[in-house]
Every structure is written in structure tokens, then in C-alpha cells.
Design a protein around this nucleic acid. Structure first.
Length: 490
RNA sequence: CGGGGAAUAGUUCAGAUGGCUAGAACGCUGCGUUUGGGACGCAGAGGUCGCAGGUUCAAGUCCUGUUUCCCCGACCA
């Protein structure tokens, strides 16, 4: 099996990657391609991400709900751009029953059981939600409506990559409805900033936010804003999106409300989402040749204690270590005590390093005699001898330090791989040799964008607030243009 | 849908110009010894060599067909 799709840093990479997900399990039993099994440890990371993000989403005033997996074909086809955008990557349910084959050895689709109207497995939930919204919303008093859904969705991509682009993925999608465009635009930016803050505060990832170009925007939106992260190889990864849907969907799903003057109006909508792709960003950003580094705030195991003993001092060391464990869990959660027998300490160290556990505590006879423990941080591999009485304080401080250090590494990477260029030759040089984010001017013509993509593989990633104000010659056609951020995208 | 690979043990792979009973490493099972950076010894289980034809005294190896998977593009969060 190979995991080459996801920025291998070394041969070791593919090994520890498999501790988190497993594609083989599924591939053997099923012809489902491009889906993946997320193993318990990987899923525990996802659960922690969910928990923290869910809290922030609710803080914004959104409530969780759940809508159907299947969308009637007619719903999806209501918004013209929306259909065009998703038509080519939909899984479609056409029948509802199987029957035994004539030879009795298997099953086949029962042609009698054809659905009158095909169902589409949701590639996103705008249509099925908004059909319902049209019944929920009558008056300005019903607004704003803010609904969030945690769900799985299916996009039948031609080519898949673990975490970055799987046929089925887990995500969160927020959908809001507002009285005015001004208000909905505010929501779009709030969601965008929520993602940026989440990335930086929780995932320790520095990101860039801004508006997407027309060719990159969501099918059916007026405008799409994106959060772009930079991976260790300089390539960019769209991490989350927030869409200004305008009144496009309101009009086709007939969502109307009576405003404060008694007039019937179409509301303004937004939608925003992030997916398990975040896990990919996490893996690809915080990793070194030893394996993953999980930011402490979402680590399923924050601290692992590894007792080191020989037969003659086993009981003593275990007792001493357990004492420290009991002391530590008073102040720190997610502490693991690894007393598995007959596995060498070296094996254990390696295993926890692969999994990215931020702090490891080694306790052996030498430490016991000195009344100390050895504390090792995962990000720098730095070891220190700490007195038992100082362990709790030290570990708490270390966890904060690691979280900060990961973010500062991510910042440094982004800053040191961001360039500004003024002509096309320079643009091509930088893109081909350095990758990274390249600030350059573009006239806004999709043809120039397309040509640049064909010739360099670089696409517009987004336009920042400052970029909009900064005008100069388009690097391709030299007509006047605004500044955009280009990059090579995953 | 284009362009390249590949298919042999649970996994990664080796098996020139066909040759006898199909191999290694890792993993797995048992016993014993080990435990401060991926432990070691001994014993063992595990294979219709992707599938179907063909050539041959003889096919994992050659030929034809077929299926599947992987990688690189196009599409996309």
C-alpha cells in the first residue's frame, strides 16, 4: 500500500500514517474506491476537533440539526449554477431493492424496483435544507435562521487522496438566512474568521483568508471566501469555505418573508463548512520524520507515561510511576499509562512518537532514586529531568509551549514561503522553484487565469483585503488588475 | 477518460535466457531469555503465484484474452 498522495517526508511516513487511517481494510472487502476507514486513534482526533468547533459554532448562534442523506433529483436541479457544479460528481440512487439471481448464487438489482424519481446522495445540503427553510420562514421575526449540520457527504471525484479528497467525507455545514445582504455578508466574514481563529488557536495552523476568484467559487454562490493553509512542501490547501449565496437559492426554493413594512421579500443566505480535510492539513503540517505531532488542544493522548524497569525492580518502578500518574491526572486530562509488558521502552517511545503524543514521561530506577522523572517534548525532542513535586506544573506549561511552538512554526513556514512578484517571468521562476504563496496582479479575466494555470500549474488561491486595494499591471496580459495570491493547490 | 506501472504468504517484495518440493524480511502463534531508543534464540502456522485459455516433456516465468489495483493528468473541499 502506498500513501504517496500526501506529502511523504520520508519512508517512515506511510507507516505511521496507517495508525490513523486504513484504506486496505475497505479495499479488500469492497469495490468502493476512494473512501477510507478512519481508525480509532484518528477518529479520536476528529472528535476533539468536532467538539471544539461545535462549541464555537454554537457561540455564533447556530443550532445543530439533521437533514436527509438523499436529495430528490429535482431539488438539485433548481439552481442552474449549482447543478452544473455538482452534476459531474454525484452518486445516484435509482432502485430500492435487490433480488436473487437466477442461479441463486448472488443478488442483482431488481428492475421492478426502479424509483420514480432518482435520489442523489448529498454532495452538500443547500437544496434539501432550503426546501425545508421555505416552510420555516414566514416573517422577519423568523430571521436570522442559523442551522448547522454535522454529516457525511459524497462527491464522486475522479481522483481521490486520503483525507484531502475522499469520495465520502465528514464535515460540518452551516446555513444561515438573513433579512439583508449587509447582515448576511457579516455572517460570511464571521464564519470565515471563526475558521481562521480555530485553525490558529486549536490546530496551530497559520492560514490566509480571502475571496476566491469566479472560477474557484462555490457553484451557486455570489462569492466564496476561503481559508488557505500552507503545507510543508509549500503547496496550499483550501481548508474551509464561507459562501455569500445572495438570493440565488431563496428565489428558486421560494424562501420568502414578510418584512417589517409588510412587504414580501427574498432573504439573503450564507453557507460555510470545513471537513475531515482538516485532518489532512494537520497531518501534513505538523509532522516530522518521526511521525505526527498532534497539537495538545486536540490530542487524544496528551501525555504518556512509560515506566522502565527490570524484573528485580519492576514492582517498585511501577508503584512509583503510578503515583506520578495519579498525581498528574489531578491537573491534566488524557494521560496514558503505558505499562504493557514485554515491549521494550524503545518500542513504546517510537510508537507514541508516531502517533504524535505531545509529552512523554520516562520513569526508570535512576529517576526513582533521584526523585525525578524524564520529560520529553515531542516537537523538539528536548529532554529534562524534573522533580516529582514539579511534574504537574511543568507538564501543563509544556503543553502550552508545544501548542504555541507548533503555531509559530506554521507562521514561519507561511511567511518564509510567501513572495511578491511583478512580472510573469519572475512568477514562473518562483512558482516552479519555491512553490508557496505568490502575490501577483491579475486583471480578473478568466482567460489569463486559465493560461497561467496551464503554463505554471498555479491557481488563484484568494484575494486578501489588502490585495483588493493594491492595483497594478496583470502579470499575464499587463492590463490593470488587483493583487491576488497564487499558489499550487492540493 | 487519456498516459505510465503492477498483480507471488497477513504486509513489503525477490524469484535472468522456462526445470525438480516457490523464497526473504517484517508481522503472527508457542516456549524460553529480555526491558534507559523500534529485543533475542529456538520451534511453528501461513501460497491453486489475479482470472481464463494456449504453447511445451515441463509455466510464477513465454503467448492471447480478461479483471483489478497503483501512480501521473483532466475534475474537485
Amino acid at each position: 500500500m502506498s500513501n504517496k498522495g500526501i506529502t511523504p517526508r520520508s519512508e517512515e511516513y506511510s507507516q505511521w500514517f496507517l495508525d490513523i487511517i486504513d484504506r486496505a481494510e475497505l479495499a479488500e472487502n469492497s469495490p468502493v474506491r476512494g473512501s477510507m476507514v478512519i481508525k480509532p486513534y484518528g477518529y479520536a482526533i476528529w472528535e476533539n476537533i468536532q467538539k471544539e468547533l461545535d462549541r464555537r459554532i454554537k457561540e455564533k448562534g447556530a443550532k445543530n440539526a439533521y437533514f436527509p442523506l438523499f436529495i430528490p433529483k429535482s431539488f438539485l436541479s433548481k439552481e442552474a449554477d449549482h447543478v452544473k457544479g455538482f452534476a459531474k460528481e454525484c452518486a445516484i440512487v435509482t432502485h430500492y431493492r435487490l433480488r436473487e439471481t437466477a442461479d441463486g448464487k448472488g443478488v442483482e438489482v431488481d428492475p421492478e424496483a426502479k424509483l420514480e424519481e432518482e435520489l442523489i446522495v448529498r454532495p452538500t445540503s443547500e437544496t434539501i435544507m432550503y426546501d425545508t427553510f421555505s416552510r420555516w420562514i414566514k416573517s422577519w421575526r423568523d430571521l436570522p435562521l442559523k442551522i448547522n449540520q454535522w454529516a457525511n457527504i459524497v462527491r464522486w471525484e475522479k481522483r481521490t487522496r486520503p483525507f484531502l479528497r475522499t469520495a465520502e467525507f465528514l464535515w460540518q455545514e452551516g446555513h444561515t438566512v438573513h433579512e439583508t445582504h449587509e447582515e448576511s455578508l457579516k455572517e460570511v466574514m464571521e464564519a470565515l474568521n471563526m475558521y481562521k481563529d480555530f485553525a490558529s488557536e486549536v490546530l496551530a495552523l497559520e492560514t490566509l483568508i480571502g475571496k476566491k476568484s469566479n472560477s474557484e467559487k462555490f457553484a451557486g454562490a455570489l462569492d466564496t471566501y476561503g481559508v488557505e493553509a500552507m503545507m510543508q512542501d509549500g503547496k496550499s490547501l483550501q481548508f474551509g469555505t464561507s459562501h455569500d449565496l445572495g438570493q440565488n437559492f431563496a428565489k428558486v426554493f421560494n424562501i420568502q418573508f414578510t418584512d417589517r413594512e409588510g412587504k414580501l421579500k427574498y432573504p439573503w443566505q450564507t453557507s460555510w463548512g470545513v471537513s475531515t480535510r482538516m485532518m489532512g492539513a494537520l497531518v501534513m503540517s505538523h509532522s516530522d520524520d518521526k511521525g505526527l505531532i498532534v497539537p495538545p488542544k486536540i490530542a487524544p493522548i496528551k501525555v504518556v507515561i512509560v515506566p522502565i524497569y527490570k524484573d528485580d525492580n519492576k514492582e517498585k518502578v511501577l508503584k512509583y510511576s503510578r503515583g506520578i500518574y495519579n498525581q498528574l491526572i489531578k491537573d491534566v486530562d488524557n494521560v496514558e499509562f503505558d505499562d504493557r509488558e514485554f515491549l521494550s521502552p524503545g518500542y513504546k517511545f517510537n510508537e507514541w512518537e508516531k502517533k504524535g503524543v505531545p509529552v512523554r514521561i520516562e520513569i526508570g530506577p535512576k529517576d526513582m532514586e533521584a526523585g525525578q522523572v524524564v520529560i520529553v517534548r515531542r516537537d523538539t525532542s528536548e529532554k529534562s529531568n524534573i522533580y516529582v513535586s514539579e511534574v504537574n506544573e511543568n507538564v501543563q506549561k509544556l503543553l502550552e509551549d508545544i501548542q504555541e511552538n507548533l503555531l509559530s512554526r506554521s507562521k514561519d513556514l507561511l511567511i518564509s514561503n510567501t513572495y511578491s512578484v511583478s512580472d510573469y517571468k519572475e512568477f514562473k521562476d518562483v512558482i516552479s522553484s519555491k512553490k508557496g504563496f505568490v502575490h501577483a496582479h491579475w486583471c480578473g479575466d478568466p482567460e489569463c487565469e486559465e493560461k497561467i494555470k496551464e503554463e505554471t500549474k498555479a491557481t488563484t488561491r484568494c484575494q486578501t483585503e489588502e490585495g483588493k486595494k493594491n492595483t497594478s499591471k496583470c502579470i499575464y496580459c499587463e492590463k490593470p488588475g488587483e493583487e491576488w495570491v497564487f499558489g499550487i493547490s492540493y
